[in-house]
Design a binder for these strands. Structure first.
Lengths: 216, 216, 216, 216
DNA sequence: AATGAATGAGGGTTCATTCAT
DNA sequence: CATGAATGAACCCTCATTCAT
């Protein structure tokens, strides 16, 4: 076989494996969204993927590992979107902060299936340290950046009476609360409206940095 | 059995019965907090209650009903505290709103075990309409009152550029987000600090109504 | 409750438990004999016992533990018969040795079902140290006693050219070989004939101690 | 395909085919010795052979057939060694009998891996007639020859009080028992010592035919 | 001829529920 | 009212077998 055919072979042998894993992770997300984490079984997942039962242990050794990789997948996806937003955003702290919040309401993040997964794992994180650790990575970095940006904005805008940490924590908590509303009660909280609520908070905090929000 | 004996027994039998049910509900809360909802079994609950396995079907017919009543118990408790706060609060909308937010950070509400239960059920609410309905009751009334109070305050204070609904939704979401932080990462988010974050938001929204918050 | 009732209660609550375990162990022996160790499943055992599948994990935690306790049961039973035989035997070494060999062909030991179990575990003992350890207890003591008795007999009878250890090892191996024949080919090797073979060996070793065997 | 190509291929295709089969049989022996028959899987065998999973069904159709052929291989090997010994032995019955027993302790027979296989199948022979039949071939012929030789020796040596069948059965059982000891407890029973035990028995039976054994 | 991804029947185990005590 | 032994459905996982490559 020529080098070319070897390359295409390796593409066919290793790629499908990665594709299968992705396919199964996506089936897991759908299953958690549809049945809940408690009622997500090897059977619901493999059925959702249109494959046989044994496939999960073949590719992930155990159901537990599949769940962990599913969480990791979602955490990673979020992180990537977030870093991309930071890279593409302008230099000003105000722009950067706004860009980050936009990510939180990006369709790929606010997908209700994925929100199901986030909250399923958060809900169990108290009893499962492994879950908490996976999420903690996200939170820590996230919090630090938000805090830094708030601090900059406050000093730039000479906002008095605003504590940077209180503001940052508020912004972060607000996002999570809005996610919860979108998950639990999507009719009363659309993605678009959630973003508006978030932006309204930003405006009230830093009115001189976000004049345009006033008019929306 | 004569009517008389039934009646006299009913006093003795139903009271302990109610106590057993409460005892089991509290054991359920502890079990969900400790093991997660997925790993909460009839056995973990009855062990936590110091009773035998059969006790749950005896008093609740099924595990599912026990879970529902546990959720109902927490929802009710929250509602009661909330109504009590409204009744005891002053007449001004600002006072009433602040009083309500205080309830959200009341030790009895913010108990981490109970937060575990809230989020456990929220996480599954997408797949279990019964859960959602139980929570929906709380949310609807809650949202309506908060909204009304915000509207009053805005008109009283002639706050321009504040949409009452956006503000109300923000306040409500913020609380939920702070609850999540307290659940997932209690070291970084104490009950006290959460309340401060919440109050800080209130202040930024309605500075002329909450001057005292400025100094804290 | 009186002391009496407590006693009868404990008899009813703990005895059945022990009875169930015995019942399951006996079902296991039958299953190994009938299906072989490889094909002995939780299902074959519980069916043999006339009970449900869950019963095994209820009483033995796992199938593996049931198997170990089954082996231990058979080892123990053998040991008890053996010690009883020693206690009841006369004082002379010749009598004692003969008594021990009688045990090896006792109906309760040579039961073909039980032989199945012995050989099933011996066959796996190379790969499963736990099995070997359980059997090793028996072997060691057994060998030591047989050796001692042979030594005494040899010195008493002034048998020249007989090594006590060779004789003892031979006697012990002969028994095991006869067991195998009874297991694998019961039509050609009855319990009675096996005993005769064993006794014939004894006679050839120590003719002056076992004159009566000559005539049989 | 032309006849010619078939013929020329048959040399190339069937030879390696036979080699593969042998390779897999040997891997099976190692696997049974290492993991036990219960834990010998298609995977343990193919791994031991350094080949892929599918190879077994390719060459043996099923796992069961591989096991049967493995047993047959060992039975055959034993038979061949045995027949060769008979052919090469002298004419006297005593020599022939001794030669046969030598085979039983030949390194190729007493290999602990192979003993594992023997006993694995013997242990299951009660529940699997197919296994028993495979072994029965060996036993029958073996027993007949041993018996014949003993009979000759007895009549030659005018040994009184010795029943030929009892002696033959004893010899055969002794060998099997010694094999078991070598398998289960190799530290206490070396191949060399086992042979000595066997020879000691022979001496005691027929002292006038085996004078040399006396001195060893 | 050989591979190894995929299958699915059947394994051991868990657990909500029942019921005799 | 309370227990806990027993059940059996459903879980996760293993593994002999198939088949496209």
């Amino acid at each position: 076989m020529s080098v070319g055919s070897v390359r295409s072979n390796s593409g066919k042998r290793t790629e499908p494996k990665e594709k299968r894993r992705l396919q199964l992770i996506q089936a897991t997300i759908r299953s958690i969204a549809r049945h809940g984490l408690s009622d997500t079984t090897v059977s619901t997942v493999s059925t959702a993927a249109g494959l046989s039962q044994g496939i999960i242990n073949l590719h992930f050794q155990s159901k537990e590992k599949l769940l962990l990789e599913t969480l990791a997948y979602i955490v990673d996806e979020y992180k990537i979107l977030w870093e991309k937003a930071l890279k593409e955003a302008g230099d000003s702290s105000a722009e950067r902060l706004a860009a980050l919040l936009q990510v939180d309401f990006h369709p790929r993040v606010c997908d209700r299936n994925k929100l199901s997964v986030w909250f399923a794992f958060w809900a169990e994180s108290k009893s499962r340290p492994t879950y908490r650790k996976l999420c903690a990575g996200r939170d820590k970095e996230y919090d630090a950046v938000i805090f830094e940006l708030c601090k900059n904005i406050i000093s730039e805008g000479k906002y008095s009476g605003i504590d940077a940490e209180l503001a940052a924590r508020g912004l972060s908590a607000l996002t999570e609360g809005l996610w919860l509303d979108m998950l639990v009660n999507p009719r009363n909280m659309s993605r678009d409206y959630a973003r508006k609520v978030s932006m309204a908070y930003l405006f009230h905090l830093f009115p001189r940095h976000y004049p345009e929000l006033n008019k929306e």
